[in-house]
Design a protein around this nucleic acid. Structure first.
Lengths: 339, 339
DNA sequence: TTGTAAGCGTTATCAT
DNA sequence: ATGATAACGCTTACAA
């Protein structure tokens, strides 16, 4: 805040009214005579007055700010989510506070501190302990969970994982690829966990046996590349790789190619998210489209409901996902299937 | 802030001291006897007390928050910048406020409001009028400009554009490609403008004539695709396209291919930024690497200096960029040049 | 070393 | 319709 910003007192003096009147004009609520309002408005403009948010929030017990907590900030996924969230928030004339926990041990504290600065929080994935989430929402602090299983009375926004994972498996089976392995780390995030469960379930349903354990990889291209490279050193590749996200898939494809293994000829690969590059890599990635921006926007919307409409009954929304068939699964560009 | 959060008064009462003492303990500054401090600390823990930031900021005239203003929020570039900025800010125990202007007319107002909520602002590219930037920094409000020419006394963080653009042109000329066109919109951002100027200068220096005007395209793949497609309808393609960023380049390559034009055989293409996908598209993109995350981190660092060390003399830092040669320019993967 | 009390800039309740 | 004034929850002289 610029050092010598005008205060409500100076505006009041300049307009020849009390600070109460200035406050009323400012918030456009109380009854103020038209001529008075005129005068005050002019003074406000002239002095370039804007209310001090801290003073306001102290008195009104409201911050006019919303917070969002990410596990991390790199990659198109988070980028899209924050985009959707920010849009909605400024639409509602709210400031946006952002925090990335990066697996920090102090995450809980940082989030608690953040909660102190806004009227509601969207919390994403594995960023904060259930204890903290529970505590906040039990205290009546508006919380919506993003891509994370429900806790206590908090709202929840997720996109569908299990059923679509099964669709992916079915599609690959349809190509005659029976020997699949899941690449990702179910322990790393609720999303990864659900995709793995869907994979497992579909495998059991369709083949009546248990799938091989997941090939562990974090959500990065580098890690995808490394896990697959390592795998190739010890065993022949499976017929298809079901990757927990597009970055892993892209890393995997690179690793396969570096080992002269044809994709999708010898090994089919699928991703998840449908990030922008998915369509331009070669082979174009067959993946699951997830409405990333909508996730952020929806979370913001639910938060808004909680705060301004004082909704108290938890809502849980599940956004639909869909299989996007391109060529890395073995389908031909023209739409037919080849394998 | 949870509704029934403990206040400093309750802590004081619980510990049997005055609020002044609690305040001292809390900020770890004033002299407090060890046993007293112990008692207070215990009470703070027990009551789970955290200072109300608004009350604190009102009294201390400080927000412990930093703001950052983006023109937009999509794409790897902004994502990386915010990443670097957030890291640094949290490191300094500051909250992060974020705002995207999206070319909104109300941008100036939004930014002025934002300035009211933090102790300093980094402002990126063409988001806000020079008038507002000037006003803020003249009022002594800490401002650092990111990827934007200097205004008044504000700090500035940019990465090198002109010289490296010339290097790109020189490289392409070295391939024997004399007929280049620049793709991008110099009017859209200071970065684009500088890259164009560097292109122009190099052309003049090396050929003694003026280059053809830029083929206008915004910073998106879609727009890159469209501009090139349109161009191809009316004229034969030039020998090389110097694109203002990687997204444009990728769109351009797609458009060329859709018209059965070989890249880089018939037309060479270069990008800018070296976003993660640049290395995995085909052909791999020859581009200019720009330290995106460092831009954000450096901006945060300068801001921190201004605020905590009360630096007042403007600093202007220029981060180095470098040509990353891959294959879309006509070089062979092995490192040699083929054209 | 500790406490008292005067702000900080608003909102909101009561009077008038 | 307008004005006094008491909160709001801190920090920070200044006193003790």
């Amino acid at each position: 805040m610029p050092k010598n910003a005008a205060t409500i007192y100076e505006v009041a003096r300049h307009a020849g009214v009390s600070i109460a009147t200035v406050s009323r004009v400012n918030r456009g609520d109380g009854a103020v005579a038209a001529p008075t309002r005129e005068r005050v408005v002019r003074s406000i403009r002239l002095l370039d007055y804007r209310p001090h948010p801290s003073a306001r929030s102290l008195a009104a017990r409201r911050h006019d700010a919303r917070g969002i907590v990410f596990p991390d900030l790199s990659g198109p996924y988070y980028s899209a989510v924050i985009h959707g969230f920010e849009d909605q928030a400024v639409e509602a004339r709210q400031s946006v506070l952002i925090l990335a926990t990066h697996g920090r041990a102090a995450a809980d504290d940082l989030v608690l501190e953040l909660a102190t600065r806004c009227d509601g929080l969207v919390i994403m994935g594995r960023t904060v302990s259930d204890a903290v989430v529970g505590r906040l929402s039990r205290q009546g602090f508006p919380v919506v969970l993003l891509a994370r299983p429900q806790v206590n009375g908090a709202d929840t926004v997720r996109s569908e994982n299990r059923a679509t994972a099964a669709v992916v498996v079915g599609h690959l089976f349809g190509h005659g690829r029976m020997d699949l392995v899941f690449v990702g780390d179910p322990k790393s995030s609720p999303d990864a966990a659900e995709r793995w469960v869907g994979f497992e379930d579909a495998w059991r349903d369709l083949r009546g046996t248990s799938p091989p354990p997941p090939l562990v990889s974090s959500f990065t291209e580098t890690d995808g590349y490394n896990s697959i490279s390592l795998m190739l050193e010890r065993q022949a590749p499976p017929e298809a790789l079901v990757c927990a996200n597009d970055e892993i898939a892209i890393g995997a494809i690179r690793a396969l190619r570096d080992n002269d293994i044809d994709v999708p000829g010898r090994v089919a690969v699928t991703g998840w998210d449908d990030i922008p590059v998915a369509s331009i890599v070669s082979p174009a990635l067959t993946t699951v489209r997830q409405p990333m921006r909508e996730l952020g926007a929806m979370a913001a919307a639910l938060l808004e409901e909680r705060i301004t409409e004082a909704r108290t009954r938890p809502r849980h929304v599940l956004l639909p996902t869909s299989l996007v068939i391109r060529t890395s699964c073995g389908c031909t560009p023209s739409g037919g299937e080849s394998s």
